[in-house]
Simulated scan of single mutants.
Amino acid sequence: MRRRGTDWAVAPPDEPALTILLKPPTEREAMVDQAGAEAWARAWTDPAFVGGLTVEWEERSWRRVGRQRVPVRLVARRPDDVAALAGGRVASEWRLFAARVAEIRGRWGPSEELDATCRRHAREITGWDEDRFLQVLDVAQWLAIHPSDGLRPRQVPVRGVDSKWLGRHRGVLTALTTATTGRPGLGLVDGDPLLRVRCLDSSLCIGGLADLAAPVRQLASLALRPDVVFVFENLETVLAMPQWPGAVVLHGSGYAVDVLEKLPWLARCPIVYWGDLDSHGFAILNRLRSHLDGVTSVLMDEKTLLDHRDLWVIEPRPARGVLDELTSDERAVLARIRAEGDVRLEQERIPWDLALRELRSVSRG
């Protein structure tokens, strides 16, 4: 029911939703307990026992007792019949979801786009209380009628809706608005993501600031002239870096490295990248190299991986795909990581004195 119920609520099946094979007694079993066999067959004729389900019967030709008509299949023709059979929380959740799908269709009319939205967001649609569900529909309807292009979330003039509320419900609101209007999004203006930068040389400080976070477009206007730029995946590593002549360190968290090409001063100096020794660390390195030249990795080699075998953990959702920007040695390490069972060596687990030694060696070129 849980597996197919979402599809049934959106598009009820034309054929029976569920067929359950019964196991009528054999002739031998009937001869051993004739009263029990008769009672079992008779129960399937009782509407109170069968409920709204259909029982299909077949004749059996038994050598000693002749022809007997026995129940062989229990058929639930409607999804609601399956829900009744399942009972409990499964049934109540399915009925609630089906009712809410009907409410959504009642507002906007049926469409493939709305059906897909309901399937994709079934968990949220079912999980809200009634007031929250109706509020989401009301806001989606308002946004469909009043395009909010250029507005910040704080400026949406709907009573009871603030930026936090929009943040929690934005996925469903966007899907509903796109399904009903064809617009690709809500048009709301988000805040620019901030990039963390530390100047490890006081001569490079920006207005006396050595550590700052700012939008990339603002950082792009800086007249920095570093001799080397470190890009680290881990913020603690960024903060632990000591004073370093001519050096700047950036927090390249996750896939934020995609925006680094917008910093023109990065194109004029060597870049040293250090990420976790796992599939995502190499995927980020690959993306960084696709945007910038002169990127060297550090502590992402097979020796480092094997020397710290006791510190490995398993990566829960490894990245897949071909990473064309990796060197042959880096591809070999990634292959070893996958062969060992998608392991991960987080950069924080590597001893700090070893890390600094390797960073100094690489930065000297």
Score class of each variant (00 low, 15 high):
Leu53Thr: 12
Val101Glu: 01
Ala256His: 11
Gly187Tyr: 01
Gly321Ile: 00
Ala43Glu: 05
Arg42Ser: 05
Pro24Leu: 13
Gln347Arg: 02
Thr126Ala: 12
Arg152Leu: 13
Trp352Gln: 06
Leu143Met: 09
Arg159Met: 12
Glu325Leu: 00
Arg357Asp: 13
Leu222Arg: 02
Val298Gln: 07
Ala332Lys: 03
Val32Ser: 01
Pro12Asp: 13
Ala35Leu: 05
Leu74His: 03
Ala99Asn: 07
Ser148Gly: 07
Arg107Gln: 09
Met300Ala: 12
Asp190Gln: 15
Leu266Gly: 01
Asp46Val: 10
Arg360Gly: 11
Arg168Leu: 12
Gly281His: 04
Glu27Arg: 03
Ser111Cys: 06
Leu354Gln: 10
Cys205Tyr: 15
Tyr273Ile: 06
Arg89Thr: 14
Leu306His: 13
Leu299His: 09
Pro71Cys: 08
Ile271Lys: 13
Leu356Cys: 07
Val161Asp: 03
Pro79His: 04
Gly207Tyr: 15
Pro147Lys: 05
Leu204Tyr: 11
Trp274Tyr: 06
Leu173Gly: 13
Leu134Arg: 15
Leu114Gln: 13
Val55His: 05
Arg132Met: 14
Pro110Arg: 15
Phe230Ala: 04
Gly187Ser: 14
Leu222Cys: 01
Arg225Trp: 01
Val298Phe: 07
Trp352Cys: 02
Arg63Gly: 05
Glu103Ser: 04
Glu348Val: 03
Tyr273Val: 02
Ala99Gly: 08
Val197Gln: 08
Asp201Ala: 08
Arg2Glu: 10
Gly321Ser: 10
Val249Met: 11
Leu345Arg: 01
Trp244Glu: 12
Gly208His: 15
Pro193Asp: 09
Arg95Met: 05
Asp33Met: 02
Val272Thr: 08
Leu176Cys: 02
Leu323Ala: 08
Asp211Ile: 08
Arg268Glu: 08
Ala210Ile: 04
Pro16Asn: 12
Arg198Asn: 09
Ile271Thr: 12
Pro264Cys: 01
Leu306Lys: 14
Ser111Asn: 09
Arg338Gly: 05
Arg344Val: 04
Ala213Asn: 02
Thr45Ile: 06
Ile206Ser: 02
Trp142Glu: 02
Ile284Val: 15
Leu222Phe: 08
Gly281Glu: 03
Ser221His: 07
Leu194Glu: 08
Thr327His: 01
Arg63Trp: 02
Trp352His: 06
Asp138Gln: 11
Val189Glu: 11
Glu340Pro: 06
Val50Cys: 09
Pro71Phe: 10
Leu326Pro: 07
Pro25Cys: 09
Ala11Asn: 15
Ala99Ser: 13
Ile104Ser: 01
Pro79Asn: 11
Ile145Glu: 10
Arg344Asp: 03
Glu38Ile: 00
Gly167Met: 09
Pro193Asn: 12
Ala214Glu: 11
Leu219His: 01
Arg225Asn: 01
Gly185Gln: 08
Asp258Leu: 15
Val249Gln: 09
Glu56Arg: 15
Lys262Leu: 12
Ile271Trp: 11
Val65Arg: 10
Glu358Cys: 08
Thr117Gly: 11
Asp115Val: 09
Glu27Met: 08
Leu186Ile: 14
Asp353Arg: 11
Arg100Leu: 02
Gly191Glu: 15
Leu209Asn: 06
Leu212Ser: 00
Leu176Ala: 06
Thr180Met: 06
